[in-house]
Design a protein around this nucleic acid. Structure first.
Length: 282
DNA sequence: GACCAGGCCGAGC
DNA sequence: GCTCGGCATGGT
């Protein structure tokens, strides 16, 4: 076992790992187990410290610092939000919620699988895909599985993919895997709009999924995924007596929330999904 | 059983 | 440009 400890002030590890931006973390012992790249990792938080354990040599741990975004300018981020009552409430509800920096292919693939699925189901589909087609990895509880790469997924038959319960998303995943295996996924040097446009050429990838990938894997803090929960949050909090459609929501998302809008999005998403539904779901 | 889920795509206006 | 139905499957 290899261990390390990291200072992590204002970091809510549980909220961050379980808020629906990543789908492979599981509660384990007093913390969380997951796979980052080809490594199994156990994470545990105690106050302002996050401790980590791996089975294989963890090297300099920079891969984990990057994944957890431990060096993100958190105070700068949250103080850049508009100071309205809705943002304040969302911040109070989940202070310390962070945005991870995931592997681009895994993020892209899992969000292709996410459309019109509940988060618990997305996790099940991803787990099946990894168990059947990922590489075996030693874990703290026995065996875990890596996320299968583009070449691997491109080789799987649509039938076998559907058997992982992904339904109509199977040809999208396979098609995107084929393209990314051949062409890569390098968005270096592209503007946000160009990167989004490029991602949206892939099968099964529209505006929402493109923005998820840009926010959760490429570190673009202006990407702002608008999904059903964000629409509900906007209606409840910002468009109470006004009509709202997707186009208006996108315009509002781009103009109102500032340079770290994507972070604000995640706070509103988590707030609306975990607190407000108990009051009303319309 | 009805309704909905971190949507996208193609057809028809 | 827009709206709308279809798409698989399982949770609530």
């Amino acid at each position: 076992m290899h261990s390390a400890a990291f200072q992590a002030p204002c970091y809510d590890l549980a909220a961050t790992l379980d808020c629906g931006q990543a789908f492979r973390w599981k509660r384990f012992q007093n913390g969380w187990e997951g796979i980052v790249g080809k490594r199994w990792v156990y994470l545990e938080q105690q106050n302002e410290t996050i401790s980590a354990q791996t089975i294989v040599n963890a090297g300099d741990w920079l891969w984990l610092r990057s994944y957890l975004q431990l060096d993100a300018p958190y105070q700068e981020i949250i103080s850049s939000f508009p100071a309205d009552d809705s943002i304040k409430a969302a911040l109070t509800h989940c202070r310390g919620l962070r945005i991870l920096k995931q592997d681009p292919w895994e993020c892209l693939a899992t969000f292709i699988l996410s459309s019109t699925k509940q988060i618990v189901q997305i996790k099940q589909i991803v787990e099946l895909l990894c168990e059947r087609f990922g590489d075996k990895i030693k874990s703290g509880s026995g065996i875990a599985y890596s996320f299968p790469g583009t070449e691997k997924v491109a080789q799987i038959s649509e039938e076998d993919l559907r058997a992982c319960k992904m339904g109509f998303r199977a040809p999208y995943l396979k098609g995107t895997a084929e393209i990314v295996a051949a062409e890569g996924l390098d968005l270096e040097g592209l503007s946000l709009a160009e990167a989004r446009e490029r991602l949206m050429t892939l099968p099964g990838v529209g505006r929402k999924i493109a923005d998820c990938v840009l926010l959760f894997a490429y570190g673009c803090p202006l990407a702002f995924p608008v999904d059903v929960w964000v629409m509900k949050a906007f209606k409840d909090l910002y468009f109470k007596r006004r009509k709202l459609n997707l186009k208006k929501a996108l315009k509002f998302s781009e103009s109102y929330f500032g340079p770290y809008g994507g972070y604000a999005q995640q706070y509103l998403f988590h707030y609306r999904r975990t607190i407000l539904p108990k009051k009303s779901n319309g």
